[in-house]
Amino acid sequence: MTSAPAIICQGLTRKFGSFTAVDSISFEVAQGEVFGFLGANGAGKTTAIRMLTGLLQPTGGQAWVAGHDVYSEVEAVKRSIGYMSQRFSLYDDLTVRENIEFYGGIYGLRKTELHQKSGDLIERLDMEAEANSMIRSLPLGWRQKIAFSVAVLHEPAIVFLDEPTGGVDPITRRQFWDLIYEKAAQGVTVFVTTHYMDEAEYCDRVSIMVDGRIEALGSPAELKKGHGVDSINDLFVLLARGGKRGDA
């Protein structure tokens, strides 16, 4: 990890009127790292992600994503990232292949490249038989894998996953994390938020946000040792208890 960090945040802040949703957060994420971004509901995770993905302008501080300034180079930021939200975000009434080709298309992939990639992807996911089925006919776990694969189809440097495993069973979640590791091994930086504390243990490093601030940052092992707790879950409860916002 000698190359430049994939994400740099320096005092990144977002205020909505008098309310400070994200309060001067600073961290770096290295290339190829799996970075867990934890926090209770309302802690400011979503606002932070929206600033890093170019959906929302920060009101203070600085940030670079894949080397691009989030203020002045929003278009370049958007081109170098992939994004998957908690709602899977595929079109129910399009087939597997149509979804893949549509999303590839909006990232500007050429037609021949698109055919090639979607063919490869369908083969890799072992979904040849379902390639022309509507998304709505597939089980949730499959859709989620497709959604992830679609988010990284254009080979972004960084992929943001916003609670990607909500509502699926532990086995499917495990398989999903295998996909994540596979991508990370190829050098893709993974920025993931989750509600499941066991998943936090899978990350290279995690940060825990409380009331808009980052209260803990480090590898799961370091953090547990440093705070004298047995699991990330215990640490999370310990830190979140000090928080005033949210419901955790």
Binding site: T53, L55, K78, R79, M84, Q86, S89, Y103, Y107, G108
Partner: peptide, 13 residues
């Protein structure tokens, strides 16, 4: 509603 708008907005479109 189905969440695809977010993905579209994050895309270069």
């Amino acid at each position: 509603e189905i969440g695809t708008m977010e993905i579209l907005l994050v895309s270069p479109l």
